[in-house]
């Protein structure tokens, strides 16, 4: 076998899969988005860009976009700060640190749906410990899962918690890859702990941070579906309906195939923006794939 064709053979399985199950559906999305299709598919109507017109003028969709934006930015922002703090703590060389690391990484293995049931239980009105804790601490019993904006906050808590493991692992690895000499030099210059954190650690782990921001955005935008489906099903009043949840409802509960495809195009466009940003700003971070 000639060495020239070997790489193509090696790539064949992967490219067959992505052709049929990623690029072909992507092309199909564009086609479907120009149609209106009946639930059983027995009536099909070409309507051009009407689905998009409807999407862009829909207050409901604007609300969903807004919810997603708030949800993603708060979850990713707060989640990464907490993760960084914990990672700094786990970087200390104290006895038993190995055990602490092992335990703290645990949420990595937990699925969004499991995170959903665990927190739905903790926040439930009749049996939840968090509800009880709030009652004895603050004298109130907030309706976590059924009121605005607490329902969205509940989803945020579950998601931040679930993401901790992944984020901490990467932050810790980033921190550990910083050469010791940098800190030693700073100590000689008389820099305090805070100064070291802001002048050395944070700048030097910025490629990791960038990678984590992208990964977290993708995760919180899409994988959160399981958490939402278990905890609130998009309610109350649609206040926890994010883009992916709406796409599911329109595609598989309301049977609006064409309309859902138009929503898919919007999601594709959003992801295209991320891809562009990624290539533009993350030349350095490409290694961290």
């Amino acid at each position: 076998m000639s060495r020239k064709i070997i790489p193509y053979i090696l790539l064949l399985p992967t490219f067959i899969i992505i052709t049929f199950f990623i690029y072909y559906p992507a092309a199909m999305t564009f086609k479907l988005s120009a149609y209106r299709v009946s639930p059983f598919g027995n009536r099909i109507m070409f309507i051009g860009l009407k689905n998009f017109k409807f999407l862009f003028t829909s207050q409901e969709y604007a609300h969903v976009l807004y919810t997603t934006l708030i949800f993603v930015s708060v979850t990713v922002g707060v989640g990464l700060v907490i993760s960084l703090l914990i990672a700094l703590l786990l970087n200390e060389k104290v006895p038993g640190i190995g055990i602490f690391r092992t335990l703290v990484f645990a949420p990595y293995a937990i699925s969004p749906a499991v995170a959903g049931t665990l927190w739905a239980f903790l926040l439930s009105p009749a049996a939840g410990y968090v509800s009880y804790l709030f009652l004895i601490l603050f004298g109130t019993q907030p309706q976590w899962l059924t009121s605005f904006p607490l329902a969205l906050v509940s989803i945020m808590i579950a998601t931040i918690w679930k993401n901790l493991g992944f984020n901490i692992i990467f932050f810790l690895a980033g921190i550990q890859s910083i050469p010791k000499s940098y800190y030693e030099a700073a100590t000689i210059d008389g820099a305090g702990a805070a100064k070291k954190l802001f002048n050395i650690t944070i700048p030097l782990i910025s490629p990791v941070t960038f990678y984590l921001v992208i990964m977290n955005i993708i995760f919180t935008t899409f994988s959160v579906f399981g958490t939402i489906d278990i905890m609130t099903q998009g309610g109350p009043g649609g206040t926890t309906t994010t883009l992916i949840y709406k796409l599911y409802r329109d595609g598989f509960v309301n049977y609006r195939t064409g309309f859902a495809s138009a929503e898919s195009i919007i999601l594709l466009a959003i992801m295209a923006v991320f891809t562009y940003l990624y290539f533009k700003f993350a030349q350095r971070a490409v290694h961290y794939q």
Partner: peptide, 21 residues
């Protein structure tokens, strides 16, 4: 035809009332 959607919309509307929206 779109009764599932109608039902869900009414649920959403009530939620909006409870949320003071």
């Amino acid at each position: 035809g779109p009764f599932p959607k109608v039902r869900a919309t009414i649920e959403n509307a009530l939620g909006k009332v409870f949320n003071h929206e």
